[in-house]
Amino acid sequence: MSQGTQCGISRGWLLTMLATALAMLLSMLVLWLNFISSTELDGRYQSTGQVHLSNGQVLAISHSLQVNNGRFYAMTRQGDSILETSGVVEYGFLGNYRLRVEDGQVTGLASEIDDELVFNLLYGRHKGSTIRLTSIDGCLYALETRQIYCPARNL
């Protein structure tokens, strides 16, 4: 007589449990694949250009960003105004990063610069302020401070 029985979890529940475990593993895999280590951002980024102020004045602008081992150092020049900041890269996910400013200062701030641009400069110098970076065609755009950083390897 080989009529068997098993005490414990029934086949249906075993399948449910396996399906749940599989779903969790897949979710974690998706998270893992989309999570980008801050070290993958390591490198030099920059862009140059011009800004045409409301008073008609044209200033040269440049943005530079250096990321190394989860820390960043950035410099923005708008005419004679220079903003320099440093801090940490908090995370990267789905092409987005977040920078947290730990130290920053603005020098040579000119009075003729439009308020919006002044605000951007001042925002970036405060300790604790966060700057979200989003990907635009291979470059990183700082949403709060309107800076654009492109990989500098071929420049």
Partner: peptide, 26 residues
């Protein structure tokens, strides 16, 4: 267009970019 400025980003073939920010009045 962000915060009263048009932002024009010209992507270069080498992966870099040049930008032009224009006040909307200009």
């Amino acid at each position: 267009l962000r915060g009263g400025f048009y932002e024009l980003l010209c992507l270069q073939s080498n992966g870099g970019a040049r930008s032009l920010m224009l006040h909307e009045s200009q």
